[in-house]
Write a protein that binds this DNA or RNA. Structure first.
Ligand SMILES: [Mn+2]
Ligand SMILES: [Mn+2]
Ligand SMILES: [Zn+2]
Ligand SMILES: [Zn+2]
Lengths: 140, 140
DNA sequence: TTTGTTATTGAAAACCATTATCAATAAGTA
DNA sequence: TACTTATTGATAATGGTTTTCAATAACAAA
């Protein structure tokens, strides 16, 4: 996914293309770690100086609505966003630098069926997230 | 774990036993769903009318510090707390009534080793949470 | 291209959950 | 019983997020 595709998605959904949105989209789309609204603001303002923090919030809201980004929950806080993975994917986060890697192929069917039987719950969703150190941070 | 044990833990750690803390502890300990500070406040005030919201925050802070409660992350928000499970356990949440069940026995070793190999990350922790409908809510 | 409509914008104010301050109180101890 | 000081609730402060609003600019239509 490129920033252009995100902008196209916005446009297709009736949203206008503005310099503010372009700056936010380009910032968030290319990041390999989760960014908070203020972080997006600081970074995007280098591309478009007049940008307001309020617009960052509003743009993130729309990107989330279109499933182009997703909120990242972490021990330190749950206000950061990153490009959404495609299909059924989960996150692997570096506890040192915050770099995010996606992974797929987790098979929880056996587990969920067992838990469903034990608890009587009907299980329909799961959250799975791994934490560790990325290759680069492991080296240091 | 009973409320008395929680209070004993607090006492052992040098904290004084007060009516405010008793009310908060009894409320949180017996709940089978995650409660926000305001929810705790409203419920605990039925046991101890003079209770202040600030004290609820402060008591929750201490209970979390002693690992007697844990924060629960949910799509709607991440400000709620519930009794901590013992040992390595995860949560199963009812999307309708919020009832929480603990489960254990998840084995992610194969998965994490595979992901570690693929990504170069050294994986040290994981978050796993299941969502669904509890037996009662499924019936309705 | 020009015009008109209206979505979008940033500044400012409002909001609200959480945290800090502080003097009064009461838990625990001797 | 008296003393020390942790704890308390009221109040104020904080800081992140949302709302308000008039000016602007995207973009469809002429
Ligand atoms: Mn999965
Ligand atoms: Mn586990
Ligand atoms: Zn790293
Ligand atoms: Zn339920």
């Amino acid at each position: 996914m490129s920033a252009e595709l995100w902008l196209a998605q916005l446009h297709e959904n009736g949203y206008r293309l503005t310099d503010a949105r372009r700056a936010v989209v380009e910032t968030v789309e290319k990041s390999n770690r989760a960014l908070t609204p203020v972080e997006v603001y600081d970074m995007a303002r280098k591309k478009y100086r007049a940008l307001g923090l309020v617009t960052v919030y509003r743009t993130l809201e729309k990107l989330e609505e279109l499933h182009l980004i997703q909120r990242v929950h972490q021990p330190m806080g749950c206000q950061a966003f990153i490009s959404a993975g495609e299909g059924h994917q989960h996150l692997l986060l570096c506890q040192n630098c915050g770099q995010v890697a996606f992974f797929e192929g987790d098979d929880l069917d056996v587990l969920t069926k067992s838990i469903a039987k034990k608890t009587g719950y009907q299980i329909s969703e799961h959250w799975l997230q791994l934490f560790g150190l990325c290759a680069k941070c492991r080296a240091n």
